[in-house]
Computed example of a mutant assay.
Amino acid sequence: MYEAHFGVPMSGAVLNSINIRLNAPTISFLLEHSSSAVIIVDQEFFKLAEQALKILKDKTQVNFKYPHLIVVKDESIECDPNNLLYAIGKGAVEYEKFLECGDPEFAWKPPQDEWQSIALGYTSGTTSSPKGVVLHHRGAYLAATSNVVIWNLPKEVVYLWTLPIFHCNSWCFTWTLAAIYGTNICLRQVTAKGVYSAIANLGATHFCAASVVLNSIVNAPPNDTILPLPRVVHIMTAGAAPPPAVLFKMSQIGFRVAHTYGLSETFGPSTICAWKPE
C-alpha cells in the first residue's frame, strides 16, 4: 500500500485505498463508482475482492469489464497458502512479477495541473451508499508538509504504522515520511504487544492512532508490555478527544499525545490541542 502511494500517482493514475473491513457488496459499489481498472489485493483478501467482483459482474452484466488483478504474496500471514495459487489461477498476476514487467527507463512526470486528482476516498456508507472525497496533488502536498510543521517532525523519525493507510490516505503521512526521509515500520495486525515491541526493538518514535488503540496500549496485560519505554514516544490522535484518564495514563508511561482535528477536504490538521507549560 505504501509503495502504491508513489507508483500509482507517478504512473498518472488515481488511488482508491479500500477499507479491508468492508463487506463484498460495499466494495463492489466502490469498484463500480470509481470505475476501477486495476485492483491490487493482498492474498489474504483475494476472495473478498473476488466476491465483490462477482456482485459487480452480475449487476452490470454486458457492460462489465474485468479489471487487471494483482495479488500481493506475503508468507508471514496465517491464511491458506493456496489463496495465492487460487488467485493466479483466476488470472491475477503476483505483485513482484508485475513489477518485473515495468520499464526501468520509464521517466515519470508530475501532473500537468496540480489540481488533478491524486486519490479518491470513501466513507464506509453506514447510513446510505458510501460518499467519495477527491484529493488533488496540491492538497496532498499541503497536508503532507503541514504534518511536519504541526508535529515538529525530526529527520530521524521512525514511524510505526498503526493508522490504516486506507483511512483518508493515512492523513497523508505516506508522503510526509518520504518528504523527511523517515523510517517506516509496518504491522500486519495492530496489537498492544506489537506496538511495544516496535518501540523497544525497532526504535519507533512516532505513530498515529485512534482513541481505541490508545486504550488498548494503556490497558495491555503486563506480558504484552515492555516498560519503561526507552524514549519518549509521540502519538498523534484525531477526531474525538481521548478520555482524560487515558491521556493521564499515557503520559505516566512515557507517551506524549497530540490531539488534532481536520478533514481530507481541508488538507491536513485544522486544529491542534497544544500542550500548556503546566
Rank of each mutant, 00 (worst) to 15 (best):
D224E: 15
T123Y: 12
S76K: 13
V213Y: 06
A92V: 10
I27Q: 08
Q61V: 12
E75F: 01
V149M: 02
V190P: 11
V14R: 14
K131T: 09
E96P: 07
K155V: 06
T123F: 06
K57F: 02
V72S: 07
V133G: 06
D74L: 02
L142F: 13
A4P: 01
E265C: 15
L31F: 04
A37K: 08
N16Q: 15
E114C: 15
G262N: 01
S117E: 12
L99P: 02
F255V: 08
R188L: 11
Y95T: 11
T205N: 13
A220C: 10
V190N: 06
S28V: 05
L135S: 09
G125C: 14
A209F: 07
I27T: 10
T183N: 11
I40H: 02
V38W: 03
F106E: 11
V134K: 11
I180Y: 05
L120N: 12
W151Q: 10
W275A: 12
T266E: 04
L153M: 07
A274P: 04
C172V: 03
C101R: 15
L142P: 01
L142C: 13
A198M: 10
S146I: 11
L163E: 02
Y66H: 09
H234M: 00
V218L: 13
V149W: 02
H136G: 05
Q51T: 03
T123N: 13
G268P: 10
A209N: 03
V233S: 07
K47R: 00
V149A: 09
H68L: 12
T266H: 10
G268E: 04
I235R: 00
N152Q: 13
A24N: 03
P130D: 12
P244V: 07
I199E: 03
L30M: 11
A192I: 14
W161D: 05
P9E: 04
I180E: 05
T260S: 15
D74P: 02
K90F: 12
K47T: 00
R256V: 14
A143E: 09
G239D: 00
G91M: 10
E44Y: 05
I118F: 06
P25A: 13
W108M: 13
L229E: 09
T271Y: 11
P111A: 13
E96F: 15
A92Q: 09
H167L: 07
E265K: 15
K59I: 04
C79P: 05
K59S: 04
I55V: 05
N201R: 14
Q189P: 04
T266W: 08
A119V: 14
K109G: 10
F6T: 05
A37F: 00
T260A: 14
S170C: 09
V212D: 09
E156Y: 02
R21I: 01
G254L: 03
L85S: 12
L142I: 14
V62F: 04
P242T: 03
K90L: 10
S36N: 10
V149H: 01
L15V: 00
Q252F: 01
G203A: 10
E278W: 01
M236L: 02
T183H: 13
L142G: 02
L120F: 11
Q252K: 10
V134T: 11
L263W: 08
F64D: 03
F46N: 00
R188E: 04
S124Y: 08
V134E: 00
L163W: 08
I217P: 05
G262E: 07
R231V: 00
N19V: 09
P243L: 05
P222Q: 13
H5M: 09
T126V: 14
